[in-house]
Simulated scan of single mutants.
Amino acid sequence: MNVVFIPGATSGIGLGLALRLHAEGKTVVVGGRRTELLERIAAEHPGIGTVTIDITDPASITAARDDLATRFPGLDTLITMAGIMEPEDLRDPASLEVAERTVEVNLLGPIRLITAFLPGLLTQPAATVMTVSSGLAYVPLPATPTYNATKAAVHSYTESLRVQLTGSNVRVIELVPPATRTTLMGQQNSEVAMPLDDFLDEVMSLLRADPKAEQILVERVKWQRNAVAEGRYSDVLTVLSGRYRS
């Protein structure tokens, strides 16, 4: 990773990861829809690049890709960070709108990004695609059914992408966060969520320790990630079923 683009990095894990990578000397570009947030990040963190991008709009993705190809021709890393998480009551027909929005952002967004940027990454001497799934890809949080489903799909897509790129110059990594203290689902003060700085510390250590890792798994997420293999799936699902219950 030398020149890194992180769409969806105007807050939370995305911004935190951008700042950590920038502090390690990487050239980092953050992307987002809100120009005012991008301008503030650029002002507060000199040296970090920004680009306006809406991952629900294919034309916006193409425009951002072309802009970055001109300004950062050595771009060798894409981290598909953008995502939303909203509760759904599946008995309510209005939940369909939430589901459609979630699929558009969390699943079609990363697929569109990878499709747009992969040709350029394949021209670099070495490159990386990092997708972002979730511990909820492995055991769902029943309050957010479509979020869980999109993250399971991102995991599956990542596995296929890695196999198809075997023998190429592109390394494929899946970052699997646990519940983390960000504004996603209002978890910034949640006692059951991992403090953001602790999560970022562990992620950066794991990236340094194993350059060939296929998944980045902090200890906190293994409770979910390994639930099936360890015969704990029902117990973990029961715990998650009690969260965000109305």
Rank of each mutant, 00 (worst) to 15 (best):
V172A: 06
V163L: 06
T183H: 15
Q188M: 06
T183W: 14
E174Q: 14
Y157M: 01
V170H: 06
E159R: 06
L184D: 05
R162Q: 11
R162Y: 08
R171F: 03
V176K: 13
T158F: 05
P177A: 10
S156W: 04
V176R: 14
R171N: 05
Q187R: 00
R162P: 01
T158N: 08
L161W: 08
N169M: 02
P178L: 10
S160H: 03
P178D: 11
R171T: 01
G186H: 11
N169I: 04
Q188V: 03
L184M: 15
R162G: 09
M185E: 07
E159C: 12
G167R: 09
E159V: 07
R171D: 04
Q188K: 08
I173P: 02
T166A: 15
V163F: 10
E174W: 09
V172M: 13
T166Y: 07
R162H: 01
A179G: 09
L165K: 10
E159W: 02
R171W: 02
G167D: 04
Q164M: 12
T158Q: 06
T180L: 02
R181L: 03
G186M: 09
M185F: 05
L165V: 08
I173T: 07
S168C: 11
A179K: 13
Q164R: 15
V170A: 06
L161F: 06
G167T: 03
R162V: 02
E159A: 12
L161K: 11
S168T: 15
P177I: 14
Q187V: 00
L161C: 06
T158R: 10
T182F: 12
Q187G: 00
Q164N: 12
V170P: 03
P177F: 11
A179V: 08
T183Q: 15
N169V: 07
Y157V: 03
Q188L: 07
T166M: 14
T180W: 12
N169W: 02
T158G: 09
G186C: 05
T182K: 14
R162K: 13
T183C: 13
Q164I: 10
P177W: 13
V170N: 09
R171I: 02
S160T: 03
